[in-house]
Write a protein that binds this DNA or RNA. Sequence first.
DNA 1: AGAATGATCCTCT
DNA 2: GAGGATCATTCTC
Length: 211
Amino acid sequence: MILSQTFYSRPTRQVAQDLLGQILVHETPHGKAAGRIVEVEAYLPKNDPGCHASRGMTPRNRVMFGQAGRAYVYFCYGNHYLFNVVTEKEGVPGAVLIRALEPVEGSGLMAQRRGRPDTGDRGLTNGPGKLAQALGIVKEHNGARLWKKPVYLQKARREENIGVTTRIGITEGSELPLRFYLEGNPYLSVKPGADRPSPGKRKKLRPPRSL
DNA sequence: AGAATGATCCTCT
DNA sequence: GAGGATCATTCTC
């Protein structure tokens, strides 16, 4: 059964935790690729400086302000697409970043898309950029309706407990406990305990690009 | 118009 | 564990 549009139109933190254990699916002419969601991060409408929408609407983040249950896909670091689910009521910007999957179906297709040998399943979908590539998610999926094919979520039951830490890779709002994951799952993007709050110093200096 | 930045990943040591 | 790749978006002048 596919998760309905109303599933997403709720407070972001609640949707984030309920997404754990659900199956993310993408069907294409090349086949079907699916993975179980094991790690997510919530980005909130209010009091969250780490959220793209925290400084108002821009051309990039406009789908976050729209209907819940749409995909928010954007290009990051010049190399990767990141896949989010839009939450909250229409007009209220919120989203959940999908950070890691446990492959369920089509791991051969995923490995092919990743351009890497299928050395077991680890490394295929244990990171937000990796899973988007493995599922064939590209910028054209921005704004896609997730309550119908070809990109959708398959309802499933969760058995594991939920763990909470701070979010990965952001500079502002890095203190907030908004990263949720399935405890003990081997497909997480970072190992448990490797994400302790780092004491300052996050900016890298780079040499000037040109003269 | 020009420059800095970023919800990352890969390679090499 | 550290550093480079790489470019669209956003900010600043």
